[in-house]
Amino acid sequence: MTTLYLLGSAAPPVLEIASAVENAQSRGYDVCLGLTPSAARWLAPELAELERLTGHPVRSEYKMPTADDVWPRGDVALFAPATFNSINSWALGITSSFVVGFAAEAIGKGIPLVAMPCVNSAYAQHRALDRSIAELREMGVAVLYGEGGFVPNQPGERRSGGYPWHLALDAVGVLAGPTL
């Protein structure tokens, strides 16, 4: 079975992460869920259920150097939703959170990576975002942003049709190959 590391940061679609896990599982993935500390705080009441659903601990912090890994080796990773802060930190190599650190290291390990931002149109006007997306793409990350991926919505507005999780999981399938 292909192991998918699903990494999420604190944007509204992270509140739908259980459905994304179930969708990935229906596609044949063994899902391990990692969250930024803020996303973990948002999902605190659901963390036990998410651990039951995935069969793995939900991680939001780096492990101690002497501790064993609690997840199986990852075959492919999806960072979604990826916030403005997470995208920019990742591109700059600022690894103050576990999920950004994993994503940065995964580039060097050759683990296939898909990222789908979740930013509003105000954040999208900041030049750092385009630079960061270009940098990640140059490092081989499949960033789903713009047509065929995530298109920013207006600040404070809910996206009609919801966050396009299916596009992210389709891209994972292309990188990972058949799972079933």
Results as ranks from 00 to 15, higher is better:
G34K: 01
G34M: 04
L35T: 02
L35P: 13
T36R: 03
T36Y: 13
T36V: 05
P37N: 02
P37G: 00
P37D: 02
S38F: 10
S38C: 12
S38L: 12
A39P: 11
A40M: 05
A40S: 14
A40R: 06
A40I: 05
A40L: 11
R41I: 03
R41H: 13
R41F: 15
W42R: 01
W42C: 01
W42E: 00
L43K: 04
L43P: 13
L43N: 14
L43R: 02
A44F: 10
A44T: 06
P45N: 02
P45L: 00
P45R: 00
P45T: 00
E46H: 07
E46D: 03
E46C: 07
E46P: 08
E46S: 11
L47D: 10
L47A: 09
A48T: 10
E49W: 11
E49N: 13
L50K: 14
L50W: 15
E51I: 04
E51K: 10
L53R: 13
L53W: 14
L53V: 14
L53G: 09
L53Y: 13
T54K: 05
H56T: 01
H56A: 03
H56W: 06
P57S: 12
V58M: 02
V58I: 07
V58K: 01
V58T: 00
R59Q: 09
R59A: 06
R59I: 11
R59M: 07
S60W: 14
S60V: 09
E61W: 14
E61H: 09
Y62H: 12
K63H: 13
K63D: 15
K63M: 15
M64H: 14
M64E: 12
P65W: 04
P65V: 02
T66C: 15
T66W: 10
T66V: 07
A67C: 09
A67H: 10
D69Y: 09
D69K: 08
V70S: 09
V70H: 12
V70W: 15
V70N: 08
W71Q: 08
W71S: 11
P72Y: 10
P72S: 04
R73W: 08
R73M: 09
R73I: 03
R73G: 14
G74S: 08
D75Q: 01
V76Q: 05
V76H: 02
A77F: 15
A77W: 06
L78K: 02
F79A: 01
A80G: 14
A80Q: 07
P81S: 07
A82F: 15
A82Q: 12
A82P: 10
A82K: 00
